[in-house]
């Protein structure tokens, strides 16, 4: 059976949607605070969120939007894989970390920034939160290609173990920050046709943070 999109969501600096419908977010307390407002609106109690870098926050919140109605939540699962893509890897956090190294008043490399100087940390954050023990992977590429993501998800779904894949574009660098995530499986036919989803990375999302 072919892999299909069961659910998808999109998070930017000012909006969050699930299957194309806006997710209501409580009042945003200042510029650049949308992700925190979204976190509060999701009524999550996960203090580690505030320690994450922006890339992980984006991926984490997208996964929460997708998985919040899934049952059972937080039961250990080996049959869910995470497949992420973006353009700039962890460059935004790499730059912040570099500042802590070359600061004029002494060299104090930040351990909490250092741990986010790899883009695939976002897949780990999602896996830890949800107790997913399946395959995780992160690819750096120029643009999001939904057909390519579906093909790769399909290959993972052929491994005899995986039953669902969280496939996502999670990008955060300078003013371009957004996450698009979809839940892919083979069991919910016919699924959502990819051509019905209006998401492209060719138009840059601006974000003054």
């Amino acid at each position: 059976m072919p892999q299909v999109i069961r659910k998808y969501c999109h998070v930017t600096h000012r909006s969050a949607t699930v299957n194309g419908k806006a997710f209501p977010v409580a009042e945003v307390d200042g510029e650049g605070k949308f992700l925190t407002a979204l976190y509060r609106s999701l009524k999550i109690d996960y203090p580690k969120f505030f320690k994450m870098d922006s890339l992980s926050k984006l991926g984490f919140l997208a996964s929460e939007l997708i998985l919040r109605d899934e049952e059972p939540r937080f039961a250990p699962r080996e049959d869910v894989a995470i497949l992420c893509f973006n353009r700039s890897a962890s460059l935004a956090t790499d730059a912040l970390y570099q500042v802590t190294i070359r600061r004029g008043d002494g060299c104090y490399p930040s351990p909490s920034l250092f741990v986010y100087t790899l883009p695939n940390i976002v897949t780990g954050e999602i896996a830890i939160r949800n107790k997913f023990f399946g395959e995780t992977s992160f690819y750096v590429c120029k643009e999001w290609d939904v057909q390519q993501a579906l093909r790769m998800a399909g290959q993972i779904l052929c491994d005899g173990r995986t039953r669902a894949v969280l496939a996502a574009w999670v990008e955060c660098f300078e003013e371009a920050c957004e996450a698009f995530m979809m839940l892919v499986d083979t069991e919910n036919q016919p699924g959502i046709p990819p051509e019905e989803i209006a998401f492209s990375t060719s138009k840059k999302t601006t974000w003054k943070n």
Binding site: Y108, S110, P111
Partner: peptide, 17 residues
Amino acid sequence: LGLDSIDALELIVLMEK
């Protein structure tokens, strides 16, 4: 507070800085 090992490293940095 439920701090973790990375927090411990940050506290060491704080002490020095």
